[in-house]
Design a protein around this nucleic acid. Structure first.
Lengths: 168, 168
DNA sequence: TGATACAGGACTAAAATGGTCCCCAATTAA
DNA sequence: TTAATTGGGGACCATTTTAGTCCTGTATCA
């Protein structure tokens, strides 16, 4: 399924809820109410988002949560990372690859690139996009083209980006 | 993490192994040996790949597994779907969305589009790419641009020829 | 001072995952 | 025909992950 966990899903929903009313603090219980999820669960999610630096919290009466930065500067990738850790498709996709099968595996490099592409894609979707009711129309093509999946060491040949669509 | 399961990982590795020698049948036990994984586990994975139509099997002496179609016509998405079911980021990303929170959720539409974009990306990476030791150099930009995330009802402005290389 | 609201973490139940094993069916070669 | 080989289909179990609850503490404000 390549599915996000429910908690991440909740996180996105709650973040979007806050993003739609960014100027007031939102108490966990109110958020839970408005997204129709149990309070403790929402609360747990919110704490994780604070720890990740996506939300700011304030205790006490009149306290609550608000965005730590504008919704346009929070990405889907941020939200996912906050709950599930860094976006990586395979065990060896992230930095400290301690997979002892690298030699017999034979696909590690390319999976890493795919992982990177997905990560970039998710990084190009902002909370502002998610929260908006309009269909996404963001420039996803940019980061993806930018990747174009050459080795990190081997810089992309400058011409390709501009020339015709046909590529091998 | 948005991580693939280990089984999917194994599937990719084994498929790549077969793809590098597409003209002979590969017995499960030999594959297990060559990728350094336990035989029963590899075997289980292979069965799933056969069920998904990505591999063909033959029993008996001289039997084994081989690709059901050329490696260039098998995508990462195919492999993932074979093991984990359809690629979908959220519960409601796939067709029969039976999520009763759609109303309060507010992000369903856009998640679906993101999911679709990822799915297209994975669909543009073929087994031939994965198995090759060369860095990916595939035309990822095409499908992603093609998405550009308009509503499904609202057709993309121009259906670009997404078939310069083999695609299914 | 008391009510409100977040922080942190322990804890549990349920589900998914990874992995093994067994017996059966098909195919080939002797 | 028989024996050896090889996949097919499940049942099964152990472990981990996930989701969710609850409790106690601490900061803030009226």
């Amino acid at each position: 399924m390549l599915k996000l966990s429910k908690m991440t899903d909740y996180a996105a929903v709650v973040m979007a809820r806050i993003a739609r009313e960014p100027d007031s603090a939102h108490a966990a219980i109110d958020l839970a109410e408005s997204v129709q999820l149990p309070h403790p669960t929402v609360s747990k999610t919110l704490k994780a988002l604070v720890r990740a630096g996506l939300l700011e919290s304030r205790r006490g009466a009149l306290g609550g949560y608000r965005l730590a930065r504008p919704a346009s500067q929070i990405t889907a990738s941020d939200i996912i990372s906050a709950i599930e850790g860094p976006v990586a498709v395979t065990e060896c996709s992230h930095a400290d690859g301690d997979c002892e099968l690298v030699n017999t595996c034979g696909v590690a490099d390319n999976w890493q690139r795919v992982s990177y592409a997905i990560s970039e894609l998710l990084g190009s979707v902002t909370l502002a996009h998610l929260a908006s009711s309009a269909p996404l129309r963001m420039p996803v093509q940019l980061p993806i083209q930018a990747i174009s999946l050459y080795g990190d060491d081997e810089p992309p040949p400058m011409a390709t980006a501009a020339d015709s669509t046909g590529k091998r």
